[in-house]
Design a binder for these strands. Structure first.
Lengths: 263, 263
DNA sequence: TGACATCGCGTGGCTTAGCCACTTTAGCAT
DNA sequence: ATGCTAAAGTGGCTAAGCCACGCGATGTCA
């Protein structure tokens, strides 16, 4: 019996392959492959080709134009993972000097963390996790307090010095990992005395709490984090565009995407 | 199908009708209409039914399960930073009943508002603006306090009853406006006594503050708003990267995260 | 020559008809 | 009771074909 690796639906595989083409062979404004071309090139039915395209349209990558074709859309909503994930790059881009204070750095078994976290990381009790507590500062002023668990099997060689720098860099370069997405939940909270002390803020002052799970390419979780942002020093900025469907948007040139920036 | 003005593709109309059903007739966890049921009920082909469903799956509202059916996914009311959906629709999709308390409704000249607001709206001093203050509630519980200015020239016929309902609907349907995007800035703040009273919350409790500018198709500003979300009842959710389908996503309650002891 | 009407063609939108793989369920055989 | 089998239902996928739409080449007429 072949264990037969779980076979994903064709349109999802097609999805991934097409997504790679966007940005590689096709860039903003260009006409993308037509449904009939996809049929020939990938040996699928037109319905499947359309379903995959529709999915990319729904993601905001492409855009349908009735009677003309499918076009690559302005990446306004583009997965700006780099800037959202990498505090270091974000700070540097803003002309500031980032620094990191590593409070905790160790390895533990998944059974030692809250079940809810282990569940979201899709790990079994015996799996190993890195645990990191860090204070991130900009120009010496503490801005972010983060608590993070990383699935150790994906980056077994994580070093202390890497943990004191940019994790994003360690993942993408040293470990050759490709971060595909992240699930974020943002809330407003009040700082506890301990948290306030780390952030050099007053007790009971507001903060943004972000709980996020970072994902690799096949929806495999890489890390879980709870991050607190000092409300007076940090704000989130996002530019929304229509995602749903085939809004014309024929006039091409739109003002470029403004990446979120710390303040 | 019906003759009528069939300007939009069928699957998009179907999309909207199905989205209304989510939350009305179907809530979290339940099995949704099957493709074959949709075929009978709406007189469309199965391919079209599937396309509409796939779209809702891509939005995160539904979830495909191979060999079983389609299920409702969205457990709680959450503000999806990726999609521009109205509060009304969002609440209904979460299975709640939305209501609105109109505090202020009037028209004023742009010179009467703060210069930085007028600037972001790109209006001259003599232009007219609608001013609205509203408390939005879900199942009778106030969750949102919003302060909004709308450029009156784009929707001169705005009525009081429209202001008490869904502005999004009034814009897109009555005034035939096409909302193309929004610029948002998210912060954490503490509620002032006055704000806390409107939201039926305690003074000094945290809230999410969203300052946004809504844009029409050619980057023309339509409205400016400052909105406060009660932190204990509302969370922002943002999914970066592609949304795949086959995730069970069990559990996922809205219970607030409790920081681990120690530290 | 230039402005305008026409028509062909390729595109996505949509339908019909049908088979497949998967999952649950109910009933049958042991 | 237990375990197996078959049926029924689901989404996944293919095939073939018609339609409305937008564009551009072509042709017409002033």
């Amino acid at each position: 019996m072949d264990p037969e690796i779980v076979r994903d639906p064709v349109y999802q595989q097609l999805n991934q392959r097409l997504r790679l083409l966007v940005g590689r062979e096709y860039t903003f404004g260009q006409q993308f492959l037509t449904e009939r071309e996809i049929v020939q090139r990938f040996s699928v039915s037109r319905a499947t080709a359309n379903k995959a395209l529709a999915s990319l349209v729904s993601e905001g990558l492409l855009e349908f134009r009735k009677g003309i074709g499918t076009f690559v859309r302005q990446p306004a909503i583009s997965y700006d993972l780099r800037s959202l994930v990498s505090f270091t790059e974000k700070a540097r881009a803003a002309g500031k000097t980032p620094s990191t204070l590593l409070l905790t750095f160790g390895k533990l078994k998944a059974r030692e963390v809250e079940p809810r976290i282990a569940e979201r990381l899709q790990v079994t009790e015996s799996d190993l996790l890195w645990e990191l507590d860090r204070v991130r500062a900009v120009d010496g002023i503490p801005v972010i307090l983060e608590h993070r668990f990383v699935v150790a099997s994906h980056c077994p060689k994580l070093t202390r010095s890497q943990a004191e720098g940019s994790l994003y860099q360690a993942w993408t370069q040293t470990h050759q990992l490709s971060i595909a997405g992240a699930d974020e939940t943002v809330r407003a909270v009040l700082l506890t005395p301990e948290e306030a002390e780390h952030l050099n803020a007053s007790v009971g002052s507001p903060a943004l709490e972000v709980i996020a799970v970072g994902l690799l390419e096949t929806e495999i979780p890489l890390w879980w984090e709870r991050t607190l942002y000092r409300a007076d020093l940090y704000e989130f900025h996002s530019r929304l565009g229509p995602v749903q469907s085939a809004k014309p948007l024929r006039g091409q040139f739109v003002t470029p995407f403004q990446p979120p920036s710390g303040k």
